[in-house]
Amino acid sequence: MAELTYRGAVAHGIAQEMERDDRVYFIGEDVAAAGGVFKTTGGLLERFGPERVRDTPISEEAIVGLVMGAAMTGLRPIGELMFSDFLATCWDIVANQIAKTRYMTDGQVELPLVLRTANGGGLRFGAQHSQSLENWAMAIPGLKVVAPSTPTDVVGLLAASVRDPDPVVFFEHKGLYAAKEDVPEGEIVDELGTAKIRREGDDLTIVALAAMVPRALEAAELLAAEHGISATVIDVRSLVPLDTRTILDSVRHTTRLATVEENPRLCGWGAEIVSIVAEECIWSLDGPVVRITTPHIPLPSASALEDLAIPSVNKIVESVTKMMV
């Protein structure tokens, strides 16, 4: 066991895969010499050299296109988009090209690539640097979508993403980069499409993703201590593919469901989960489901307003106690 931050886990995970497979390479803006603006990729240039770890111009379409073309022709590249908001500047290549090419060519090509990006709010960066865009990626058939909440999961899910034969959009949460944890020694490889139960309870199932997971866990402790409510907390981890079994099994047991989503409300991933629960096990429910989300607004830059918008521990406790009466 060694203590690792979420930020350190990124370089650790990339290094693990680059060490294993020399077809893995890594490009992005300020990722090599500077080690990443979030300090996530330090040391990779020194370790793997400038051929495999490269700084690019500020050209997101080129970054994503380079990654795509290289993947189509046999490499297993990782590209970084510094902030997930910048997905919008290269969305054609992501949504029209990467997501559809294997399908349209009858599987003649595979696209084993990973687009890593820093997602989410809380850092007062304003509306163009704070979005939670996992639901954008989830809306495009052909993309796998992963969003880890712990350092161990960063390493394991990144490895699984690199080894996956399909394109994966890998959302790191910039509010989690400082989080620490003891991570097992040796190679870590996880599995896409698997959720994790982070806390077991009997009264309600709370489903959360990325930075909302630690908040949901903290809320669950408060709910137990102050309100006698025992909650299961599920970390979704992978939106596509989605581990519906773990979620449905839990809801069948607890009979109540709340989702905690950082994405703006309309078409958030929680709506999809709620609709699956409604289709598969509505008769197991003992009350209305609740979606706790950021309101459907761009994120204001002012601190107090940003805090008000993103679901907080208090907001989760409040919403759950209200739904449980």
Binding site: D85, F125, A127, S301
Partner: peptide, 21 residues
């Protein structure tokens, strides 16, 4: 307070805005 440093704008002065992108 909605924009912050990267989004200062004043249309009355012809300033269409700073930009985060």
């Amino acid at each position: 307070g909605m924009g912050g440093s990267m989004h200062v704008a004043d249309l009355s002065k012809g300033i269409l805005g700073a930009n985060g992108i």
